[in-house]
Amino acid sequence: MRILFTLFIAITLAACATTETTSQPPAAVEDRAPGTTAPGATARPVPGQPVTGVDLTAKPAATGAAALKDPNNILSKRSVYYDFDKFDVKEEYRRMIEAHARYLRENGTTRMLVQGNTDERGSREYNVALGQRRSESVKRMLMLLGGREDQIEAVSLGEEKPRATGSNEQAWAQNRRSDMLYPGEY
């Protein structure tokens, strides 16, 4: 794990050295064992880990809890939304997750709870498992970007804690979601 992590930072730094704005294919971080394929996801060989850039030239954000609550800081954003029955993290959420991974790196003692949620359709228990896949995919991405395993717990609330009530696509889209929460926020 440590070797991998070091290697990863090296790759990230290299990526930053060449270009400031990185434009890479989406990091399809899936919840699965290496070398196996999971349904509804594209299989990728493990050696081809997606190269993800972290913009280290950006002004260091205010560390500490204040940054998390500053509406102008990306760290105040916490939610990742998903398509129906999907659990892959879309490209548009990468920058936010990178920021949180950096926050975890810089605040080594802080912890995070990632809660996965689903819409109301289907079995409650299956939705607990689907929500878990969603939170795990965020956790994996955070770890690839430098968060430590022991800092992050991924759990699922299934369909049990909907943010939006109502039985329509608008409400469902709000509820297919992972939230990244810090101590005191859950």
Binding site: D31, R32, E125, V128, A129, Q132, E136, V155, S156
Partner: peptide
């Protein structure tokens, strides 16, 4: 356990429960 713990089911003799855990990654 770390992660989610759910879906309990009793064995017919009541001695064991089948459960779903995500402690090793997926459910």
């Amino acid at each position: 356990f770390k992660g989610s713990n759910s879906a309990p089911a009793w064995s017919p003799d009541g001695s064991r429960l089948a459960v779903v855990l995500s402690r090793d990654g997926n459910s």
